[in-house]
Amino acid sequence: MSSSKLDPIEPHPLPSQVVKADEPMLVAAAKAGDIPAFETLVGRYERKIFRLTQNITQNREDAEDAMQEAFLKAFQHLGEFQGNSRFYTWLVRIAVNQALMKLRKRRPNVVSLDEDLDTGEDMMPREVEDWGPSPEQRYEQTELSGILSNMIGELDPQFRVVFQLRDIEELSTEETAETLGLSVPAVKSRLLRARLKLRQKLNQHFRREKTP
């Protein structure tokens, strides 16, 4: 029988910030060559890493290859993981580099992350209205994942990579800059653009939904 006394409400941490207690043990075992321990880590993060490689490459085959290569590279280089960051953050850095290599191979003339972007364009949002019910109330989780993934895919690579690392994978601005070889101001400027563009896309999407 359940207790009538309610548990105190505790702050709910974001799923991406939760490190399972067994993770350091699994990483240590994998470092020692324990393949099942590494496979447990793969199972824990494969969905998130595939979303990352898919969002960056926008190509299913490249995303699969980048994910496989990232996990293999992680296993090969586990000895270099010092534990100064979360294992997942370390894995994300490997995966983003694999995904960017695929993207550059397929679109060599389009993708240059370090080019100077014109920041003179007026970024002032033109569509300003409240959104009403939250997307979680409007859509099934799978449907929402698809909508968000398509929206990210419509961004220029320079913006979507920064947004993916900073706002989805929750790397710090400094970690994002270091991973991509960009300056901190460049990351901030691209992040602002990406956030405003995605805000606009969500706004248009919600407005279309409201129109009968």
Binding site: K48, V128, W131, L144, F163, D167, I168, R199, L202
Partner: peptide, 22 residues
């Protein structure tokens, strides 16, 4: 205020979204 709120919501929507099953 609306721009700030909806941009904040944008980040939360993307950040909290669950990846689709593999």
């Amino acid at each position: 205020r609306i721009v700030v709120d909806t941009t904040k919501q944008t980040i939360e929507i993307f950040c909290n979204s669950e990846p689709a099953p593999l």
